[in-house]
Structure formats: C-alpha cells, structure tokens
Design a protein around this nucleic acid. Structure first.
Lengths: 225, 225
DNA sequence: TGAAAAAGTGTGACTTTGTCACAGAAAGAA
DNA sequence: TTCTTTCTGTGACAAAGTCACACTTTTTCA
C-alpha cells in the first residue's frame, strides 16, 4: 500500500526524486486521502487552508464569487493536477478568495499546509515546482480574462459546450443552464436565450438539465471565427 | 558608483544577502540601466523577453491587448517594483502576452533573462522570491478581474480617478479619455458620457486632456457604496 | 502666418449583455 | 394524487459597448 502510494507520488510530483529521504517520509506520513461528492465545496476562500490538494480522480473547478453570489470559473483541475490555491496561506501576497468545488465524485490526496510550506522553504526543487504551478494557473486565469473581455458570448458558450463534451466524454451530457451561467460568469436567462438560438440553428438539442451537441462543426466554426 | 549600485540592490532585492558573492558579482556585471520616455512600450508580449526590469524611478503599466486593439491595464509598477513578466521566458507554462508601457519617464535596471534564470534555478532564496512576486502579481490581476466582473462602470471610473490623483500627486491631472478607456478596458465614448455625468453632478471638472477632482468625498462614497 | 492634419471630445442610434419579475413545465416528495 | 422544488422561457428594461459622424482645439509644416 505504502509502496503503491510512493510510486504514485514519484510519478506525479516532479520534485520527488530531488528531495531528501526524510522529506519524502514526511510527505508519506502526513498525506491524507479525501473524497468529495459531486457538487461539494472542497475549499471556501475565507476559511483557513486545508493544504495542497492533489487530484487522484474526478474533476474540480476553481472559481471566484461576488458579494451578490455571481460566480465565474477560473480553471478546472483533473487527475494528477495540484491545486496551489487550497494552500494559498503558503504564499504571502495572496489576498483573494478562490473556491474549489468537486464537479464529479473526486478523490484527492491532501498534503498539509505546514508540510508543503516547510518543503518549499527548504527545497529548491519544490520551490521551482511551486513556481511552475503558479505560472500555469496564472496562464489559465489570463486565458479566462481574455475570453471574458474580448470574446462575445455566443463564442464563449459554444467553446464551453465543446469543452464540456470533452470532459464528459460524450456529445450528450447533463448540465443545467444555471450551472453553465455560473461557469461563464453570466446569467441563466442569457444562457437560456443563446441555447435556444443554438437549438433553432440546429447546433444543439436542449432538454431539461441536459444538452446534446448535434452539429459540432457549426459550433467549432463559431468559436474559430 | 558600483558601491552605490550594490547598496541599492541590497536594499531593494530581499534575496541579496542570501546569495553567494559570485552570484552578486554576476548581477552587478550584467545589470544595465535603461531609460524610457513617457508612453514608450518597454516590452511587447510577442517579442523575446529583455529580462527582469527593476523600476528605479517613474511608472509602468502592464496590460493585455485584443486582436482588435482593445486594451486593459493589469497592474502598475513603481519605484522598487520588479516586473516578472518581462522575463516571462524564465517561466515555463506562461503562454499569454503581457505588454509593458512607461506611463511617465522611467528609469530601470535590467537583469538579463539568462542571469535571472540561472539564479532562480540555483538559489532557494531567489526562487522563493520569484514565487512571492508571481503571487503578488496574480493577486493584482485577480483584483482587476473582480473589478471588471463584479463592479459597475461608474464605481470603476471613480476608483480610477482617485487612484490616478494619488499617482499624479494632485487632484488635477493630465489624461485623455481615450487613455482612461484603455486602462479600464472600456470605450472612449463610455468614459466621455460618464465623465460628463460626474461633471454635471459636480464631482469633477473636465477639460481637453485633463481632469480636476472637485468633490473627492462624493467619488469616495460612490466607490464604497 | 495660415492652411491642413491630427488629436481629443460629444452625441444619437443601435446592439449586446445583464437584470427583474413573473409564469409555466417537469421532476421529486409526501 | 397533490404539493414542493427545480429548471426553463419570456417580456420589459437597464447598462455598457459599437458605429458613424460632427465639432473643436492643438500641432505641423509649407
């Protein structure tokens, strides 16, 4: 069991071979498995950070929220992804609130904040990797910013539907219009109207809580143009 | 002269005392002074990175640009600030284009990309500091994102005018409505209309290429509410 | 110096997107 | 079944961005 875990971490954490034996032991002894149901909030911005989540299986979205409850998805995490923001107390200078929500049933390993903090202050390899992670999420967020600021809503919705089909592994999937709006930082009514337009044009078929893409090519062209 | 530079760097770079003598020498020998006029583009996203700018005096804005030429300011840098993105080639995983523009006449020191890259891979202190810098800019950008997504335009404009007054050191300052729009990611016409509304309410007096805040309190209340 | 060009601003009409209020349909619970 | 909750549709309106064009002030330079 422990050998199995060690092999997995060695595979997933690029710094594994570059840290000392006692540091590896520290991780192995303090890491904990966590399971979350679909929809469950894993980390809410304000609360003290749980630590560093490593997604073993499932899917997670990171999002921000306004006072009025409006949301927008920053990026999504999958197998083998690490979430640096659940450990944001490790980083000085971070003063914004990120929320994490399991989108499907999700299993994570959790490295305690304290352990990760120590490691990144002791090990150059870990610090460099934290840098890479941070830069990678920064890139994700900048992509989202560019979408929101510079791309019209029809393109963004088409893009989202295509992406969702990839995540779900099928061109027909379950999702409510309310949830689509939450991802895109828009309003349900706006999603409703645009989906009905897409349906009218024969791009999709909409049902209660589900969507089927029936003209993938048209959606792709809409995105590209 | 060199002693002067060394003292300055020791004061400004938190990792200075934690790196080796030969590393300090490397920086001292490769660092170059650069001057930019107001309005000059210091770094354009696409081009190869110049290196790491350290702002000695003046003011710099970091912004992104759409294909159509629409801009929005991500954050602004002042004396003693370091710009990690002009050295973005140091970071893997960064694939978005940041532009840097001198807002006033600006003097910088430039640490070559190669030197900074080497240091951050050799020195834990430098790597940790790069982390802090990245997290700090990430925070700045998230603040901007929250403003754009969750705050109405009148509040954002009021906020910008108050901030600008601080930067300029006076409640009367020179700026075109076109430039305000560029900062806020909006359109000149929208700025024009809102400024005229502010003027009508007695918050500001607008002239060609200049603005005077005459009711600071009203603007502050608008922002806070 | 005077005419042309460039830079900055104002405005109305229109489009897109978000908000609000409400209605109705589908699914689930008792 | 009946009641409740969840999900979606729609019209009226508000906020912000786009487009076209006009007008003024400043700068350029012949």
């Amino acid at each position: 069991m422990k050998e199995h875990l060690e092999a997995y971490l060695g595979d997933v954490l690029p710094f594994w071979k570059k840290i000392e034996g006692r540091q590896r032991e520290l991780i192995l002894h303090t890491i904990r498995e966590n399971k979350f149901e679909a929809g469950q909030i894993m980390h809410a911005g304000a609360e003290e950070c749980a630590g560093m989540f490593l997604v073993v299986s499932g899917q997670v979205r990171a999002f921000i929220e306004s006072k009025e409850g409006k949301e927008i998805t920053l990026y999504r995490l999958q197998e083998r992804d690490l979430c640096i923001f659940s450990a944001s107390c490790v980083l000085r200078n971070i003063n914004f609130e990120v929320f994490l929500q399991a989108e499907k049933e999700t299993t994570c390993y959790l490295i305690p904040t304290k352990v990760f903090k120590e490691l990144s202050q002791e090990s150059l390899a870990v610090s460099n990797y934290a840098n890479d992670l941070l830069a990678s999420r920064f890139s994700d967020v900048m992509w989202m910013v560019e979408q929101v600021l510079f791309v019209s809503f029809d393109k963004r919705l088409a893009q989202f539907l295509l992406e969702q089909a990839v995540f779900e592994g099928s061109d027909e999937f379950q999702i409510t219009q309310e949830n689509i709006a939450r991802h895109l930082g828009s309003a349900r009514e706006v999603v409703s109207r645009m989906l009905n337009y897409f349906a009218q044009e024969g791009y999709v078929v909409v049902g209660r809580g589900k969507i089927s893409i029936v003209n993938r090519k048209a959606l792709e062209e809409l995105v590209d143009f």
